[in-house]
């Protein structure tokens, strides 16, 4: 791909046509552009719906609606037992991959074969954390990164997410604010994941589990 003459002129032509269509024939002036940029940086929010609910209660309720199952562990150390319970109840494979931050959890004593590594297409279980979780919709906000592999929550049939209660936020907008506070810049990808993958493309009939996970299980970890 050579970004040569024709492509550059396409850009100029399109921008010129836009300006003509808008009836001003020239770009915004320096002052107008500066004003626009200032406005962008203020991140004004649209009208927010009523969010006077309890964070944890709402998150659980929305997860259930999305067919995400929810369990609890008092602390991180208890997570493997909770995961083992979930897997054995459903007779699911007990081996898989997790994000590096959970590599040191006592998986083996709980009877699980969990390795801290990136998943392959053959893994049937992926265990992740989350940057935060959005209570309004029961959504995980996952950031891509060297230690937060996106494929772990995507390729295996079963995705288990470890969610500290302290990381619940109200809305997607709160998630963006948190991201700006804690990270210098956006990761390559921010994925908002709400339950198992689904489709209704045949006769508008809902089926869980198409390309992404068939099951999403959240283990809430108390403070």
């Amino acid at each position: 791909m050579n970004p040569g003459e024709p492509v550059m002129s396409a850009r100029d032509n399109i921008l010129a046509r836009i300006r003509t269509a808008l009836g001003r024939n020239e770009p915004l002036d320096a002052q107008q552009s500066a004003d626009m940029r200032t406005k962008l940086r203020m991140h004004p929010r649209g009208p927010q719906p009523d969010m006077s609910w309890d964070l944890l209660e709402r998150f659980r309720e929305r997860c259930t609606i999305l067919s995400t199952t929810v369990d609890e562990a008092v602390n991180l150390g208890e997570v493997p037992a909770a995961v083992a319970r979930y897997l054995s109840e459903r007779q699911l494979p007990v081996a898989g991959a997790c994000w590096p931050e959970f590599g040191a959890l006592p998986w083996s004593p709980a009877g699980l074969g969990i390795e801290a590594r990136a998943v392959t297409g053959d893994d049937r279980l992926g265990i992740t954390g989350t940057f935060c979780a959005v209570a309004e919709t029961g959504t995980l906000m996952l950031l891509s990164g060297p230690d937060t592999h996106p494929a772990t929550s995507l390729l295996p049939e079963t995705h288990i997410a470890i969610v500290p209660v302290s990381r619940l936020v109200r809305s997607m907008e709160d998630g963006w604010d948190l991201l700006r506070r804690e990270k210098e810049r956006l990761p390559r990808q921010v994925a908002f994941v709400s339950g198992p993958s689904r489709t209704a493309d045949i006769e508008l009939t809902l089926v869980l589990g198409i390309h992404g996970p068939t099951r999403v299980h959240v283990v809430l970890v108390g403070d």
Binding site: T137, G138, T139, A191, F192, S194
Partner: peptide, 8 residues
Amino acid sequence: SISNYLSF
């Protein structure tokens, strides 16, 4: 209320 995957 929300779609399953919003990828930014």
